[in-house]
């Protein structure tokens, strides 16, 4: 009952929140919602101990797939988003054959190479990917009404509600996966790989499974992004974006489910709202870099370690 109340309060707060902020901040909220899904899906992969540098390109696969099937084949947009997720998962499945011959540092670099190859393909082949200019005029979500609320997708608020529902649903599924026996096996693959193997766990197929699931959700996030901004190009998914995802995960901490999400929220608010309001447009990357260095030096376990300190103290009392 108490949990239900907390979630109800969170839901009401999320419904009210976008009406209190400025238009540009509403847009930030939409991006933030999508990025939360990206970073939460990224964590599922890091559960097995592998760090990928191709996650953002996989997200781009979802964006391109959804944009193409809705634009060229006239598919209904919500179905297109699902197709985006499925394509990203499928590409990840294909990539898993070469990539999971590697581990650790080699996987990191290998995933980067595979991602860059996909990205450069988009750039090279104008048909159907649109070359360096990418795809423009992607179909927006069709407006609809649920009786009490009219969804008008020219308004960021409406898209925020829509993406928040989709992302919440995805997060719930990710959470259930992590708490299921499969999720526990992912932990075992990371921390007790020899023991897991001796107990009959096929390490490689579990790594592949984590990679495919994580990629599927990243693809959904990419599709959500594509139908919001309406235009995508290869540079929307380059390694600089990947660096942001990596820092959200590391600054937040990957020990808990909420760690990376916390990192994403805190750093986005800091970067997009606080620093922007202070008018430090050109020094933003500098301060961001400084925060990154300071947090890795003085908070190696991430923001989640601070949260844990407080919750533990409460329990001790």
């Amino acid at each position: 009952m108490r949990n239900f109340l907390i979630w109800a309060v969170v839901a009401v707060a999320l419904i009210i929140l976008p009406n209190l902020v400025s238009f540009s901040q509403q847009e930030v909220l939409v991006f933030l919602t999508i990025n939360i899904l990206v970073v939460a899906s990224y964590r599922l992969l890091t559960l097995t101990g592998e760090w990928s540098l191709g996650h953002v390109v996989i997200m781009g696969v979802g964006a391109y797939a959804s944009a193409l099937v809705t634009k060229e084949l006239g598919l209904w947009v919500p179905l297109g988003i699902l197709v985006g997720g499925a394509s990203a998962a499928f590409i990840a499945f294909l990539l898993s054959y070469p990539l999971f011959r590697m581990k650790g540092f080699y996987f990191l670099i290998g995933s980067f190479a595979a991602g860059e190859i996909i990205r450069l393909m988009w750039k090279r082949f104008r048909d159907p990917f649109g070359g360096a200019k990418g795809i423009k005029g992607i179909d927006p979500m069709p407006d609809f009404s649920i009786g009490i609320y009219q969804f008008d997708f020219f308004e960021p608020v409406s898209y925020f509600y829509f993406s928040a529902v989709v992302v919440a649903l995805c997060l719930w599924i990710l959470w259930r996966i992590e708490k299921s026996p499969v999720g526990l096996t992912f932990h075992a693959v990371h921390w007790q790989d020899k023991l897991a193997q001796a107990s009959g766990v096929n390490l490689r197929s579990y790594r592949t499974l984590a990679f495919v699931i994580a990629s599927g959700f990243a693809g959904i996030a990419g599709a959500l992004l594509a139908h919001y901004i309406g235009t995508i190009n290869p540079n929307s998914f380059d390694v600089e974006v990947m660096v942001f995802v990596l820092t959200w995960a590391i600054v937040g901490g990957t020990g808990t489910f909420y760690g990376p999400i916390l990192g994403c929220i805190v750093l986005t608010i800091l970067n997009e709202i606080v620093l922007r309001e202070l008018g430090l447009e050109q020094t933003r990357p500098l301060i961001y870099g400084l925060i990154l260095i300071l947090s890795i030096l003085f908070m190696p376990n991430g923001l989640e370690s601070i949260v844990q300190k407080f919750t533990r103290r409460k329990e001790a009392k």
Binding site: L246, I293, I296
Partner: peptide
Amino acid sequence: VASIGFLL
């Protein structure tokens, strides 16, 4: 990660 920060 620290070197990424330095890069920025």
